[in-house]
Structures are given as C-alpha cells and as structure tokens.
Amino acid sequence: MKKTTIFAAIGGVGIAVLAIFLIAADHIDSPSVEGTTTDIADLYAFEGNNPDNTVLIATIQGPLAPGDVTNNAAFDENVLLEFNIDNTGDFKEDLVIQAIKRGDSMYFFGPVAPETQGLSSIVETSGPRHRVKISTSENVEVTEEDGMKFFAGPRRDGFFFDFNRFNKVISGEVAPEGFLPPAEASDFFEDLNVLAVSVEVPNSMLGTAPAHVGGAVGINGLPPAYNVWVSAKRKQ
C-alpha cells in the first residue's frame, strides 16, 4: 500500500458519540452511490463493555441476501472506509481510523492525525497498523491488539423499518391510518445482511472529548462527546 494513493469521498454520515448507543442511518442514497461498494448504510458509535473504550461500526452495501456475502470478495480493494473523529469541537477530523481490504484481510490504520482533511485522503501508514482476516458467514474472525478490537465481514442488518407499510403511506393507500403500532409492524430488513467494519478503541487514544454539540440540556447538561462521521472514499 503506497502512502501517496489518493482517495476521494463518495458519501458519509455522522453523529456525536455519548456514553450511550447512538446510530445514524442512510439506507437510500443518490443513484451514483446506491448499490455500489461505497454505499454506506449505518454508523453506530457506543460505549464498549469497557466504559473507557468506544466502539465504532460502519455498515455498507446493504441490504444483501445472506447468500450474497459468503466470502471476502464482497469488499472492494479500491474503497477506503474512514472513521473521522473530531475531539476539539470544530467539526474537522483531528484523528482518523482507516480500513481497507487487501487480499483476504482488512487492514486498519490509526487512530492518527490525518495529513489531509476533507474530501481526499491518503492511507495513513505512519500511525498504528492492524490486520484482521475478513469473516465469512460461517467463520467469525476478531483481532485484539494494543487494547483495540477489529472485525470485518457480513452481519445481520440491525436497521428496523416497515418499508412495505412506508410505501403504502406515501402512496396514500392507507392514509390517514399511517404507520402500524410496533407490535404489528413488519421489519423489512429482518432477514437481510450488510457488510460491517468494526473497531473498538480506548478513549485514551482519541483524546479528550469536546463539549457536546447539543450544549447544556436538562439539569445536569449533556456530557462531552466526540463528533464522529464515516466516509467511503474511492481510489483515484
């Protein structure tokens, strides 16, 4: 992997990370991205089992039938997936964790301060480097090194949405009844998969979180939070 390789952003989604579970979803993209190997489905960020760690998960290329993702060929070697972390509150990436496929493995770089910010990136080989073999539907591979954990492979889509009812609502077929109550709703994604890339990282490697973007809310206010977003960037 050459450090001079340039990757340009195709799409991204972001959230603020608290010590609770948060998610940002983007299952429908523009025609230039939808259905491609750069199509981002969800970004998850939450406190790990160790409360001093943060877990970052990006899912891509969803929805997929389980039989579509049984080998490592599903990931694209020309796509760089990049977790961006803002720890100063200026909404610019101060650190990045990058993931890119090579052969049967996913290679992770970072967290490291990026040499460039914004829409273009290079593979940041100057920081920490780790590797995990890409999992299949039958064999799950997890690498644990230097206090970090890594995974790449197919997982069940965690997004819940009654898509069929949604289509009836927007078409006016069931107006004004609207959506069904939770007990009656049907999860369109229940039997579908996505490709997931996951990293668990000690907060000590991410720096001190800035004040929450939401400001002081409630009696005790909101705790500090990293601003996190994920980008899918294609080799130029």
Rank of each mutant, 00 (worst) to 15 (best):
V69A: 13
H27C: 14
R129H: 14
M1F: 08
A8P: 15
L206A: 01
T143F: 03
E93L: 02
F108S: 00
F109Q: 00
E138M: 04
N139G: 05
E141F: 09
I20F: 00
D157M: 02
F160I: 10
S126A: 12
R102G: 14
S135F: 00
A16K: 11
G214F: 13
S231V: 12
T136I: 08
V33N: 12
L18M: 10
S231E: 15
T36Q: 03
G158E: 12
L18T: 15
V112C: 06
A65T: 14
S231G: 12
S231D: 13
N227M: 10
G153A: 00
G172K: 02
G214W: 10
L81C: 06
D52M: 07
V217S: 15
H212M: 09
E145W: 05
S32R: 15
N203C: 14
R129V: 15
N193D: 09
E93D: 14
G147Y: 03
R156L: 10
L222H: 05
G127K: 04
P176Q: 08
Q61R: 14
P31D: 07
A41C: 11
F160M: 09
S120C: 11
P176C: 07
A232P: 06
F21K: 14
E124V: 02
V55P: 03
K92M: 08
S126Q: 11
V169P: 01
F21R: 13
I20E: 11
E200M: 09
M148D: 12
R102C: 05
F160N: 13
V217H: 14
E34C: 04
T116P: 06
R156C: 05
P154V: 04
Q117R: 14
F151A: 00
L180I: 07
Q61H: 13
I23H: 03
S186T: 10
K149N: 03
G110Y: 00
D76P: 11
S171V: 05
T38P: 06
V228R: 09
A24V: 09
A175Y: 04
D157P: 01
V17M: 13
E115I: 13
V55G: 05
W229A: 05
